[in-house]
Design a protein around this nucleic acid. Structure first.
Lengths: 412, 412
DNA sequence: GAAGATCATTCATGAACTGAAGATAAGGAG
DNA sequence: CTCCTTATCTTCAGTTCATGAATGATCTTC
């Protein structure tokens, strides 16, 4: 440590340039109106702590640009019978820009077309095959999906595309370090896709997609600090802090599925032992199912079918089957407790498509999680289970694209 | 999830007001000069991306306020033989303000007096007894320590005090939820101390103190993203992201010592089982030492002496003793791997006073940690061991006070 | 219909920052 | 030594951005 014994020493953090700029007020006004859906000028002024005069000027500008518009004869909700001059609601001009969000998955790919206000206009889906494939093949699949979507809503050019996929994705660099869908490593997928599709592209990890979906369309409306945990093929998480998505300091991180919960523990598909995923994910349950159900492992069903069988057996009281879910539940409690211990979010959202195995989300699991957390004089963490549909992920991808498109129009 | 099927729906995060303001330029200039130790106006302009004209105006202002001054006849380093007009170095006027940083500990309390530039002018220490005590007693101890310091450097009024202590501390609220040094719970220690000492006070968790010390005086000079892990009585950590200290979303969090690394594992002093601390901290090693060394547990030495014995035995080749350190090392590797997996820092610093048991920091431990981390196409995380002295914690507390004092003079 | 309330606009003003031009202080070439 | 080049620093007028105060608009209430 510099003890200052000689020469000029310097003290205090060296902030990177990115931490020193704030979005221009025009951008803040626009974002606020979009976040609220509709807002009067006076609301904006109060919410952003700026003068009414500024709001008038800025909104006039945005209206002139065709990005905002006044809404006739609409009463803003959450307001008592007005006493004075009625407010004039403003809203985003939805046709200002359109964006496409794409989620690439193990079983299917989905996509949505959204307007500039974040409303979903159309969606599309294509079955996909699990496993890794050459880059070219995946590009074809994305192009076909986007073409489907464009045929549903003709004449809408997408100002930006957001694309999410499982694996290790560096959003900032636009690179996929590794994905269960892709052959190869360290692919510059963002630029390759942008060249192929002719639109700006943003890519991200699928857990971040789901978290963005919550931030833009779900829990984020009420809370600006929360964690999202998903359990599917793998175990993922995302974190929102102060209304912003937390990305690891090097653009990755939050690999909850691969935190170690036991020395020399169960084998994970990543090749290591003791990962949380190895006790919780689809394949982890499925490989125990054969033993528990006394099946011949050689003539195995698909993992999915196996799990369904296991689940119904457990429901019916089959003890070994039940035990599998109980243990998985305890590990889930442990993983959630670790998340709370480290990030201290006010709210934890359990989300994802596979909410069927509700053993995992039983009262006892959540109770055990609370027991595993130091009390610390704060209210216990809230836990919500969000069993959204398939399209949510693509909506999160659309949010990614919306951010990029808005950056482009109004500056970061 | 809002599917936008009716009415205005709204999309996008609702940012809290705190996320929307940036520090005024005067503050940025001041902070930059302090961070650099010395800097010419032209350097500041380049670094902050503002015009030279602004820097001249702002520095003239700050010089007028007595906060900055020009340094005569000093060549700035990192610059070749000058071609043009030589730059004029600026520096913080150290006498502008003085602050005191205090670290309260199990065995002793330490304190430093620092000038406004962050240079340490004096220090003081007092032995302390471990264990919890009434609030009044701790207040007395702090007051006595501060009095010692003031007597060393008379005539220096402290513009702010930073105080750190172990336990669950909510910096923002200024409240101590629980501390191993204090009877009771949920004490508004910040305000109580401020009233008692007659100066503004900031309080924080001691792990954050150490992290701040690194940020202000150590690793932060070169890196704006890193994690700090300490192993002492407990296991703590701190995180810096983009040059800013990460505090959990509710002001706590980062309780690395109490993440669970094993279901139904070893008993932790927090009363739960399977905490990382229960495999790594002083007391965890000490309680196995008695068994390993074949001592009668009833006539036990102090934990500290016990550990020293254990360590020398292990060094001498005593296998059970060695085994204790080996296992602790493996758990350390696991804990570090989890930190990397979740936060993805570019640099991990192992710090704290107890770096003696170097078994824990052996090559093998760090190698095992790297093995436990998903590769992910990024360079492996760097690990540094910083065996700073006792005063570092108090320096971190001084940094806390410096921030507060600077806020007060120049605005947040 | 007058009073009161709330929202929106206009306009002069002020603060913050900038660009351009010039002043200053060195080294280097002739 | 003089002049040119280079880089730092300063000056100053101008732009941009946001504000406060005054005004107008449009509703409810009495």
């Amino acid at each position: 440590m510099d003890d200052g014994s000689e020469g000029p020493h310097g003290a205090g953090p060296v902030l990177p340039a990115s931490a020193r700029t704030q979005p221009p007020l025009r951008r803040q006004v626009f974002d606020h109106v979009r976040a609220q859906g509709r807002a009067a000028r006076a609301d904006v002024a109060r919410a952003l702590g700026i003068s009414a005069a500024s709001v008038t000027a800025i909104t006039a500008d945005l209206i002139g640009l065709g990005l905002l518009r006044e809404v006739e004869g609409v009463s803003l909700d959450g307001r008592e019978a007005a006493r004075g001059r009625p407010p004039v609601a403003l809203e985003i001009v939805p046709e200002g820009r359109h964006v496409i969000g794409v989620k690439l998955g193990d079983e299917r790919h989905t996509a949505v077309l959204a307007d500039f206000g974040g409303r979903i206009l159309a969606d599309a889906a294509r079955p996909a095959r699990p496993g890794r494939r050459p880059l070219e093949e995946l590009l074809e699949e994305v192009a076909a999906l986007v073409a489907d979507l464009r045929s549903h809503a003709p004449g809408q050019e997408a100002a930006a595309l957001g694309i999410g996929l499982p694996g290790l994705v560096d959003h900032r660099a636009g690179r996929v370090a590794w994905s269960p869908l892709l052959d190869g490593r360290d692919l510059d997928l963002r630029d390759i896709l942008a060249a192929r599709l002719g639109s700006p592209v943003q890519i991200d990890n699928d857990s971040n997609l789901l978290t963005l979906a919550e931030l833009w369309f779900g829990a984020g409306r009420a809370s600006s600090d929360f964690a999202v945990v998903t359990i599917e093929h793998g175990v993922g998480m995302g974190l929102v802090q102060g209304g912003r998505l937390f990305r690891g300091t090097r653009g990755m991180g939050l690999e909850l599925g691969h935190i170690k919960v036991r020395l020399d523990g169960a084998l994970c598909r990543c090749g290591q032992r003791g990962c949380l995923e190895a006790y919780l994910a689809d394949y982890a349950l499925a490989r125990e199912a054969a033993t528990a159900l006394g099946r011949d492992p050689r003539q195995s069903q698909s993992p999915r079918a196996m799990l369904d069988t296991l689940f119904s057996e457990a429901k019916a009281g089959h003890e070994p089957a039940r035990e599998i879910f109980v243990r998985a539940g305890r590990y889930l409690a442990l993983g959630l407790a670790n998340v709370v211990q480290l990030f201290d979010p006010g709210l934890v959202i359990l989300s994802g498509e596979r909410m069927r195995y509700d053993f995992l989300y039983a009262e006892e699991v959540l109770a055990e999680m609370q027991r595993l957390v130091l009390p610390g004089g704060r209210p216990p963490v809230r836990v919500e289970v969000h069993a959204w549909g398939d399209l949510v992920w693509a909506q999160g991808a659309a949010a990614l694209a919306l951010m990029a498109a808005t950056d482009e129009v109004l500056g970061a």
